[in-house]
Nucleic acid binder design. Structure first.
Length: 792
DNA sequence: GAACCATCAAACGG
DNA sequence: CCCGTTTGATGGTT
């Protein structure tokens, strides 16, 4: 159950040391996608170094397999030697892992590049963990990039950007020269016991009795037709547990329940939506999953909340940790489980506050979504109506009373406390449904009562946005004006890069500098094959004249996708499966069939824009919901075998390699049977021909992932790559995905730097980890996480 | 502590 | 597209 990739690096060193890194499958289980364990092996023999010589596998000393803590993580976690690892046998390790800022064990000293003897300001505070938000403290001289946290991609710091590109490009040369790739598999003892059951995989949670129970049930062989009253609850239960385990929410303590942070909030929302989408899919095919009720949004939230999986449980005034101004939500329950706005329906959330001896209610947040006659056109001002005054049953109106939320708002006016405002906006893509935008905190300026159309008293509250917050709702209004044409988008170079090839334009924008656009290429909508990807299959297609429908058990397209349609009616990805079978030429269904999502062209308004520090990038004017389809990777399909090891010999910076490891959702699959690995050697070149996807940059905390999609005609099949949103993406947030990694060891200065280049064609992106390595009588020390983003 | 109630949901059908 | 119906969850109040 070991390696799927291994890369050797040979470096000039005296004595020479060759080390390989193996990403271990088993360790991925239960870890978040940004983390993983890596094994570092010391090879016992030396090779002809300084060239691309290929080390022979026979020289590996398997007894010297060592474990290091996660190489790719947002915050470095340093090993806790006793009992930390569940995947390895404890063994004395010649590695000593230390944060780069200390404290250091006896005999270990601060090391280059984190220590500069000339820098008296060196930060050795152990509490900073080395990768907080102050990367600029580290001294690198003029040519070495400053360490930056891995997640700095989203919030780049000025120190990290300036002047680092040169040095990284410089270092690319000698690292890539010294890299040797070897493709043989180190471990043949792969655990084949895993099973793929009914569309989602079993997860090994030994403490989970329901999972065990289900595994042993022969009842499952009835193709789920059983109406056993407990039958479906086992499915749902194990589904929830799988998600929770995958995203480290299984054991959720009171501390995290009371106060969240970005990672907790992100993961909870991630699991919520995965669960909600899966329940949606199950609900569509009722006879396969009896007992699944309507309202998957409520069901998913209730499942999580009964397990205590929620955060910011304690009400508070002001911002909620982990939720940023501009964040978007698609369901009221999402606001609830992250603590932004607790009531599932009511518009005013409030809490009791001790004032001397008495308690009085104060408002903490409001949702303005059109239920009453609110006025919010100004953008920074909101006239909000009080609650009550209507009888829901018979719609009878009466005077509002100064109680509950109304009273709380009144008290908040006098106490001048901040009130969070969530603006509900009609979702254009879905005629029904709303998008909720967190618009930051407001203060109540005045209140009054007025008569409404029925002559009843209604309370009104004037709220004014607290200045200095990022644009949120105002941005939506701007974008609407760009679309209307009532206000111009600044910096537009080309209004439509596609020249009408897509149903929606793709704008080319640069409001950063005076570069007039990326190098010339031809816009094409789809992936182009010079020959079929595969000719072995024979497939007659479906006969769904009006388009494939959920629950049509006879539809062969549905059958190939484990009995479900992979997309919702709104075009949101529902399935967990590693490969999607879309309808193809052989199918009788129309082009707008629900199962042709990636063939219908763009659904969101994209823009290619100049970034501050990474060349050109891709983003969307429209909000994209989690699982939403973005686009496919267009270009020329290439045979990987015709390329060099790294495919970069032609200077092609626009490559997509489907054979690379990508971590998103791999944790959700039981990988012991290899089912999650994409067995398709598809490499796409978008150098000459491509679409917006070729501009998508890499991130270690991406908001987009890709999935392979198979389209079949009678005797041929074609593989395509489609991109989907990992989480809800607000407008104009850059779209990024994880390119996948190659790990490189590099001797640098006094230490070994573990570095990673994330794609064959891209310069070194991430330099990693802090180790002290005792080998052959020499001690090497390596630096901690710092990251480089070079753009394209 | 249980039951009830109020509430700017969300999906669906006509 | 608007409207009503249905199915609902949470949190506060009784």
């Amino acid at each position: 159950m070991e390696s799927f990739q291994r890369y050797y690096v040979s470096k000039h060193r005296n004595p020479p040391v060759v080390i390989s890194l193996i990403y271990t499958h088993s360790s991925l289980r239960g870890s978040r996608f940004v983390q993983g364990w890596w094994k570092v092996r010391k090879l016992t023999s030396s090779y002809g170094l300084g060239s691309n010589s290929n080390p022979s596998s026979g020289s590996i000393d398997k007894s010297r397999v060592l474990d290091l803590r996660p190489l790719r993580c947002l915050v470095p976690v340093f090993p806790n030697p006793p009992g930390m690892s569940s995947v390895t046998t404890p063994q004395p390790s010649p590695f000593v892992c230390t944060p780069p800022t200390g404290p250091f064990p006896p005999g270990i000293h601060p090391f280059y590049p984190f220590f500069n003897p000339n820098d008296s300001q060196q930060n050795l505070n152990p509490n900073t963990s080395g990768v907080s938000n102050q990367p600029g403290n580290h001294a690198f001289g003029n040519s070495i990039p400053a360490p930056v946290p891995l997640n700095s991609f989203r919030t780049p710091t000025p120190q990290a950007n300036g002047g680092t590109r040169q040095s990284v490009r410089g270092s690319r040369g000698h690292t890539s020269e010294s890299v040797v790739v070897e493709d043989d598999d180190y471990d043949d003892s792969q655990n084949q016991s895993g099973q793929h059951v009914s569309g989602f995989s079993q997860h090994d949670t030994e403490d989970d009795s329901t999972t065990r129970k289900r595994r042993g049930r022969p009842r499952k062989s009835n193709a789920g037709k059983s109406r056993d009253e407990h039958g479906d609850s086992f499915d749902v239960e194990s589904l929830v547990n799988k998600f929770l385990t995958s995203f480290k929410l299984k054991s959720f303590d009171d501390v995290r329940r009371a106060n969240g942070d970005k990672e907790i909030v992100d993961n909870i929302l991630l699991v919520y939506d995965l669960l909600r989408r899966r329940l949606t899919q199950l609900e569509e095919v009722k006879d396969k999953s009896p007992g699944i009720t309507r309202r998957p949004d409520l069901k998913a939230a209730s499942l999580l909340m009964t397990k205590g999986v929620r955060t910011n449980n304690t009400k508070r005034i002001g911002h909620v940790p982990g939720v940023e101004v501009g964040d978007i939500f698609f369901f009221r329950m999402e606001l609830c489980i992250v603590g932004l706005h607790a009531p599932s329906m009511a518009g005013i959330d409030y809490m009791n506050m001790k004032i001397t001896v008495d308690e009085e209610p104060v408002a903490v947040s409001i949702v303005s979504s059109g239920g009453y006659d609110d006025l919010g056109d100004d953008g920074d001002v909101l006239i909000y109506s009080g609650q009550g005054g209507v009888q829901r049953r018979d719609k009878q109106m009466f005077d509002q009373k100064l109680e509950r939320g109304n009273l709380a708002l009144e008290k908040s006016l006098h106490r001048a406390n901040e009130v969070r405002v969530i603006r509900g906006i009609k979702d254009i893509t879905a005629s029904t449904g709303k998008i909720y935008v967190y618009d930051g905190v407001y203060k109540i300026q005045e209140s009054w009562a007025e008569k409404n159309n029925s002559g009843c008293n209604v309370f009104k509250y004037k709220l004014v946005r607290v200045p200095g917050q990022p644009e949120a709702f105002a941005l939506w209004k701007s974008i609407q004006q760009w679309k209307d044409g009532t206000a111009p988008r600044s910096g537009v170079i080309l209004p439509d890069l596609t020249s009408g090839a897509e149903p929606l334009p793709v704008t080319l924008v640069n409001d950063v500098d005076d570069e007039k656009g990326p190098a010339y290429f031809t816009y094409i909508r789809n992936l182009k094959y010079s020959k079929p990807f595969s000719t072995s299959k024979s497939f007659s297609g479906c006969q769904c004249i009006g388009g494939c429908q959920a629950g049509h058990t006879s539809c062969p397209c549905s059958q190939r996708n484990e009995g479900y349609l992979p997309y919702s009616s709104l075009g949101v990805l529902l399935t967990d499966e590693p490969l999607i079978y879309e309808c193809g030429e052989a199918c009788a269904c129309p082009p707008n069939c629900r199962n042709r999502m990636s063939q219908a062209g763009l659904k969101v308004r994209l823009e290619i824009f100049k970034t501050n520090d990474r060349g050109w990038g891709l983003r969307s004017w429209d909000p994209i919901r989690a699982g939403g389809f973005i686009c496919e990777y267009a270009g020329d399909a290439t045979d990987k075998s015709t390329l060099g090891d790294f495919g970069n010999d032609k200077g092609d910076n626009y490559f997509f390699d489907a054979t690379r490891s990508y971590e998103w959702l791999e944790a959700l699959h039981d990988d012991s049977n290899g089912s999650t690995k994409v067995p398709f050697p598809l490499v796409i070149s978008a150098k000459n021909n491509g679409n917006g996807a070729r501009f998508m940059n890499h991130s270690c905390s991406p908001n987009v992932f890709w999935k392979p999609i198979l389209r079949e005609s009678a005797n041929e099949s074609y593989l395509h790559i489609a991109f989907f949103a990992i989480r809800h993406i607000p407008p104009l947030q850059e779209l990024t995905f994880d390119y996948g990694m190659i790990i490189v060891l590099e001797a640098l200065g006094e230490g070994l730097i573990l570095s990673a280049i994330n794609c064959s064609f891209v310069p070194v992106r991430c330099l990693f980890y802090s180790i002290s390595y005792q080998a052959l009588g020499f001690r090497y020390q390596a630096a901690s996480i710092f990251t480089q983003f070079t753009g394209c």
